[in-house]
Design a protein around this nucleic acid. Sequence first.
DNA 1: CAGTGAGCGAGCTTCCGCTTGACTT
Length: 686
Amino acid sequence: MKLLIVESPAKAKKIQGYLGAGWKVLACLGHVRDLPASKEDVPDKHKGLPWARLGINVEEGYAPLYVTRKGKSKTIQELKAAAKRAEQVFLAADPDREGESIAWHLSVLLGLGKNAQRITYQEITQAALRKAVEQPRPIDFRLVAAQETRRALDRLAGYGVSPLLWASVGGAQSAGRVQSAALMLLAQREQARLAFVPAGYWRVTARVGSQPPFQAVVVAVRDTPLATAASFDAQGQVKAGLNVMQLDAVKAEQLVTYLNRQQASVQQVEVTPVTRKPPAPFTTSTLQQAANARLKLGAAEVTKLAQSLYEGGFLTYIRTDSPALSDEALQLAREAVATRFGRDALPPSPRQYATRNANAQEAHEAIRPAGKFLPPADTGLAGDELALYTLVYERTLASQMRDALGEKTSIVLQAGVVTLAASGTRLLEKGFTALYDDTEKDEEDQVLPTLTVGAAFPLSNAKAEEKRSTPPARHTEGKFVQLMEKAGIGRPSTYGNTLDTLLKRGYIAVRNRQLHVTPLGLLIAGYLLKQVPQLVDVKFTATMEADLDRIAEGALTRTAYLDAVWKEQLAPAIDRAARTPPRVQVPHLPAVFEARAGQVYLNAQGRAAPVPEGLLPEDLTEQAVGEVLAGTWKGPRKGRASGADTRQRAESGKQATGGKRGGEGRTSTRKRASGTQARTTRRKTS
DNA sequence: CAGTGAGCGAGCTTCCGCTTGACTT
């Protein structure tokens, strides 16, 4: 009997089917050993050593202490027993840095020594597997070293900076390479929104009486452009060097009267062809984004549904950073398109997609229908599972369809001293959009008549509308996952966890499907930016990845890298850091948030009051500040169905000043405060 | 005399990444 070990049980089952008798295929369920998480994980032999709880002996070349992971002993026993009976053992963990490490840990635990046979393959087909088992190789210790370096750095940074926060920021619980950089991304956006000063401007439109009529918008008066949202900066001022006309209510009304008496003549008609390519098949992050936007599902829900579809054999592996399809999948997708839309819907040659993400490891292919590409109606699925499968199915097929072709028409009209414009897009060939349309609707877009230059039409129904420039939008969960991927922060298997951690710790909150940063989150981001700037720098991970690649190539050693980053940068920054409670000014208000004694306070008018549960920075107005100080704040304004949809995690509990008792009390109040009502409003009923 | 509560001190929290069930609520 030959033993082959993979990470996932679903994969094991499939491979067992391909290899057949004479083989036993087992799963190790991911990592089997790790650094001790806390004191109780430290084996007796090492108890008492000053570095044992950290799990890294910095002074002895950053030597790691590995222990069997909690809950893994049974799996390991089974693997050991199977290995003993096997004549050969193949280690087939995923073909990336973490997979190589898993293979090495397994070889140690199973006592394989130098006989460890490592195999990798890019797709799970019988041919690929047969080939792989004929070409085993030894474990790549450089790749293992790169993973060990990553692990050590995350432990040193996380267990180094977290205690700094405990000592400095009341209520703060944790910091780390990924969560802190991610928090910073959100905090910067939140700050930009809070500091934003909107500018008012007028939008004036009129109806052009052609056959059929259409709407045109005023773009200039006497050749001076009319101010639009894009004319203003974040302080509400006209951008430097821009010459624009700013109307007031009186002038806008005069313009309306003027227009209603004018004829507009066509000055310019421009028709340009538009080609749109289909989006690539899904990766973890793009699936999150699309399911969040189209199905209104949160990151955790998407993961749960997708995992269940994966286990049911409906989808391929769900944690991937590659949009590539296997040759087999390409053929199946094209056949499915041909069946549904005819051969004409296909481009002559299959489309292959590559990642544009520099940090991608590409150990798996894209998320797509598994097996025979069952049409959604034939799956027997229902509800959200069906909706998610359909989304994946259609996106995969669409990725193999023809481009959408159209033309965009832009018209310029002159009415006396006023210049107007209109635009419209016409779809000529639907292409992939027949199945999967991901375009956002443009309000300005309309169907335009065919016009010739010089033609003139009366204007009517002129309207003036006052508008305000809007601050940069908050991120949704899906958008945030995309941002993390783009910045190279975190991995497909952890995007959801990171979001969850930030929610649990009370650093961020979800309200109306938008991510907000809490007062505590703003304080932490501000503190870290000042005291340990390396940790919140989005480039930190990207640089780390490049260095890990050099370690994997043998061009850099583990200790040299850790000395440079830990000993010379992070550790001194932690030592130097001021252990004083941070303050954050609330823009536009004479108020500051401050963190002390395990609690976040709002400080204004020389008084301080604890920030009430559920208060987010956007809730603060002059009136709200007064209510918070008086202890009468009753939750966010109900104006736009806002407060009820705020979601924070039940267990979140800010670090209480006292031990257990405080923690328990807090948990129960929080359940009452947010748990029940949040769930009922979470999802639309279909 | 028993029960309550204030006050004090000791010990602990924490990272990222790879995988699923087995547990509650």
